[in-house]
Each structure stands twice: as structure tokens, then as C-alpha cells.
């Protein structure tokens, strides 16, 4: 199940509904050497895997400012992390609706750094969807348990 189109569409919907910002398909990569944030929710139950949302810290700050109506000053890191967690939670919830019953979603965890890699041992990448919101590169990845894929 490729899921590319569905993930693209539901990310556009989440961005529009929550952030009121346009986001569109793009082939660009995340900025190297800059601070990036990755938020991840895991799926358990009838289907096991994970959904990850990654972008630069500037995109996370813009999302937090919109989501929490921060009009003066830069959003605090906590707000950026919560915004990323909320966005991946919504994307994950929409992905869950496409999966077999019954699945549960974990709470999101958010990673930040300038040079890190995220790996989900025992999983394979189903798809990675690159998008762009204004000047910001965004990627949404879906991983599936290898055990289940077999």
C-alpha cells in the first residue's frame, strides 16, 4: 500500500485546518546543518508502524505561533514541541483511519537537533512524502513493522 497520495492529501488538510497555511508537494530535502524537529507517533494493534513529521525549527516556530495565537515574540521551545506533536498526532490519526481495525496511536514524541538520525529498528519505510510550506521543507514518513510486512 503506497499511501503517498493519501498522506499528501491529509497533510494538506491538516495544514489548512490547523495552520491555515498552504503546503504542497515538493522534491526538496530538509536543510542540512540547521536545527530540525521530528515528531513521531507509533501505531499498535492490527497494524504496527509509525508516522514521522520532520521540518526545520523555523517551520515549527511558525506552526506554534499560529496554533497558540502567539502574536508577540518568538514561541518558546515547549510550544514548538507541542505544535509538532499535535500536527503529527493529527496526521497519525488520519493515517490510522486508513488502517485495519483496531489500531491505537501512541502519544507523540518530538526530537530536536542539528545533526541526528531517527531509526525505527524492525521497520521498513513505506513512503516518505516531501512537501513545502512557503520557504520551509516538510517531510512526512510512514514506517511499517517488518514482521507485519512479511
Amino acid at each position: 500500500m503506497p499511501f503517498d497520495e493519501e498522506i499528501q492529501q491529509l497533510t494538506v488538510s491538516v495544514w489548512d485546518a490547523i495552520l491555515h497555511l498552504p503546503i504542497e508537494p515538493e522534491t526538496g530535502a530538509l536543510p542540512e546543518g540547521e536545527r530540525t524537529m521530528s515528531a513521531c507517533v507509533q501505531i499498535t494493534g492490527a497494524w504496527r508502524g509509525a508516522v514521522a513529521l520532520s521540518c526545520g525549527a523555523d517551520m515549527a516556530a511558525e506552526a506554534a505561533a499560529v496554533m497558540f495565537a502567539i502574536t508577540s515574540g518568538a514561541p518558546e521551545k515547549n510550544d514548538m514541541q507541542d505544535a509538532m506533536g499535535e500536527l503529527v498526532n493529527m496526521i497519525g490519526g488520519n493515517v490510522k483511519a486508513l488502517l485495519p481495525e483496531t489500531c491505537q496511536l501512541s502519544l507523540p514524541s518530538v526530537v530536536e537537533g542539528s545533526d541526528y538520525s531517527m531509526r525505527v529498528p524492525g521497520s521498513r519505510l513505506v513512503t516518505r512524502v516531501p512537501l513545502r510550506c512557503g520557504a520551509h521543507a516538510v517531510t512526512v514518513s510512514l514506517l511499517e513493522s517488518e514482521e507485519q510486512a512479511a
Binding site: 507509533q42 526530537v111 530536536e112 537537533g113 538520525s117
Partner: peptide, 16 residues
Amino acid sequence: TVPSVIMGRGHTVSRP
């Protein structure tokens, strides 16, 4: 869930 592993100097992990 299946575990996620983060490798990279100076990263942070947060939750809600």
C-alpha cells in the same frame, strides 16, 4: 510500540 532510536550529538527528546 516498536522503539525509535535517535543518534546524534546534542539532540533533545520531548513529549506533550
